[in-house]
Simulated assay, not measured.
Amino acid sequence: MDQRVKPSPEEIRRAREENPKMRERDLSAQLGISEAELVAAHCGIGAVRVEPRVNDLLTGLEAVGEVMALTRNESAVHEKIGIYDKVVTGNHNAMVLGENIDLRIFPKVWAHGFAVEKRDGDEIRRSLQFFDAAGEAVHKVHLKPASSLYAYQKLVASLESSNQEPTVAIFPSAAEAGGEGQASVALIDDLRDRWSRLTDVHQFFGMLKTLKLSRREAVRMVGQDYAWLLDNDAVSAMFHHAAAGGMPIMCFVGNRGCIQIHSGPIKSVKPMGPWINVLDETFHLHLRTDHIHEVWALRKPTKDGHVTSLEAYDANGSMIIQFFGKRHEGEGEREDWRFLAENLPRIPSPTAA
């Protein structure tokens, strides 16, 4: 965010009227504001502020029926059409474990919410949009023709905030950590020992936290028997191979407040400029390949044998997107996925020390 004087709500609405086709994320960047501020400016004029009570939201969404769930970060947009069912509520972690909509949610990150109505020709497009304290989008729910408008309106009314001011207080997120320091031999040995003793992929985050390492730091220093660097085109190659072979994959896209997962085959892979797109019936993915700085393949031990993932990182070291072969707890890894991951083009890895 730059240091310009921020536009008033009236100026924001005027800019929206003058740029009706521009995406909200792009328009807010052009105005030097967050996306939450752009939406808030329309409170009372197409937007209603709602409280980001995640548990109430999730339990209320099932009655709305078929919707489109959208989770994104700076470089990838993940869209799934389905129903919010098999909800697991929680104050620190919440989940949706439906057949099509599969989410891991961190409710404390959700700071602002809005119910938005936007006219598009003769149609009114309705959505619920949620943002973190910095005004960055964490999750959106878009109504579809099959959605229950009655259930949606009832849910919005139950979440409606008493504060309908057209502004929001924004607290910029902490800056990314600086450059990665040189790793000691002892730290590398400790990392390799802990990595070798993993029995579940969900233990990985705890290991990083214990060692005070970022994900990419660990990946870079653990050694090529556990992590190896791939050509940046590896993600596109994987998409095309998986689509051609009907291979079911798991695709994770997330931000600080939400991770969204697709599990299943992909069919329609369409490159367009810097984007590679998956355009299937209930799954759309839009990935900026020009934002990919590094792609790594990781091998993690589990009690069911090792599993292999692909992870793409941006220039700041943040993970953009992650892939596994589709599997369930207690199952071994698919041989076709492992073969594909292990045979994507490699490049020499940077040394950790």
Rank of each mutant, 00 (worst) to 15 (best):
G44I: 10
I83Y: 09
D56A: 15
G82Q: 09
H78S: 02
Y84V: 02
V54C: 13
V77L: 07
E79D: 02
T89G: 10
T89L: 13
V39D: 10
H42C: 14
T59N: 12
K80L: 03
C43T: 14
R49N: 10
E51A: 14
G82T: 03
G65S: 05
N55D: 14
Y84F: 15
E62C: 01
L38K: 01
T71F: 01
I45G: 00
N73D: 07
S34H: 01
L61M: 15
G65N: 05
E37S: 12
R53H: 13
G46M: 04
K86V: 08
A41G: 04
E79K: 10
G44M: 05
L57V: 14
T59M: 15
G44C: 01
Y84P: 05
G90Q: 00
V64C: 12
Y84N: 00
S34G: 11
A41F: 06
V77N: 12
L58P: 09
H78P: 05
T89A: 13
C43Q: 07
V87N: 07
E35R: 08
I45L: 09
M68I: 06
P52K: 06
N93L: 13
E51Q: 14
M68P: 02
V64T: 05
V48I: 15
E66T: 11
A36G: 12
V50C: 13
A63L: 07
G90I: 08
G65Y: 07
S75E: 10
A40E: 09
E79S: 06
K80G: 06
A76H: 09
G60Y: 14
T59P: 02
T89V: 15
V77I: 12
L61V: 08
L38Q: 03
V87C: 06
E37M: 10
V64D: 10
D56Q: 15
A40T: 09
T71D: 00
H92Y: 14
T71E: 04
M68W: 10
Y84T: 09
A69N: 05
G82N: 10
N93Q: 13
V50R: 10
D85Y: 02
E62G: 05
K86M: 03
V64F: 09
Y84M: 11
E35D: 06
M68Y: 04
A76L: 08
V77K: 14
E74P: 01
V50E: 05
H78Q: 08
N55P: 04
I45V: 00
N73K: 01
A36D: 11
V54P: 08
S75N: 15
V88F: 04
K80E: 10
D85L: 07
K86T: 01
E66H: 06
G90W: 04
M68N: 00
K86G: 03
G60V: 13
I81T: 12
E66K: 05
V50G: 08
N55F: 12
I83N: 05
R72D: 09
I45Y: 13
L38T: 03
C43A: 12
L70T: 08
V39Y: 01
E37I: 08
V64W: 12
V39S: 06
H78Y: 11
E37N: 08
K86I: 06
M68L: 04
T59L: 15
V39K: 00
T71C: 15
C43Y: 00
V64E: 02
E62L: 10
I81F: 07
A69M: 06
E74G: 07
T89H: 02
V88K: 02
V50H: 06
A40Q: 00
A36W: 04
T89Y: 03
G82H: 02
E79H: 07
Y84S: 06
